[in-house]
Amino acid sequence: MSLAAPPPPLVYVIDDDASLLRALRRLLGAGGFRVCTFSSAEEFLESTKAATPGCLVLDVHLGGLSGLDLQERLVAAGRRIPVVFITAHDDAVTRERARRAGAVDYLPKPFNDESLIAGIKRALGDA
């Protein structure tokens, strides 16, 4: 679609499960994304890299600040960053909260790679 090769879009991944974090880095890397991983919301907030525009693949249940809290915090701070929620604890309440907060997608674990990439692309498109 683009003539010149634009810099690969940046995907921030936040999950407290180290194994999943490594898997996502491999998957998204293989899918042509630039990936930046964080194991907690706090780490993300402190990181300067997070200033680069991109989208966020965010685990709902994080140790410390939760995914939803982070999203609320970012919205409150005026940072509009599209979010794809992933969760191993799927329930209606969480799903509704995420939707209200304006999540681009909401994927219960385990998810399909195509769903995730589709979600990310949609998020990046929004950006």
Binding site: L24, R26, K109, D113
Partner: peptide, 24 residues
């Protein structure tokens, strides 16, 4: 619910890894 989370977590990693491997 919590227990499901604990199981889903590795499953998610497994699936993701497997799919990443395929793509690679």
């Amino acid at each position: 619910a919590s227990l499901a989370h604990e199981i889903n977590q590795p499953l998610a990693a497994i699936v993701t890894n497997a799919q990443a491997a395929i793509r690679l």
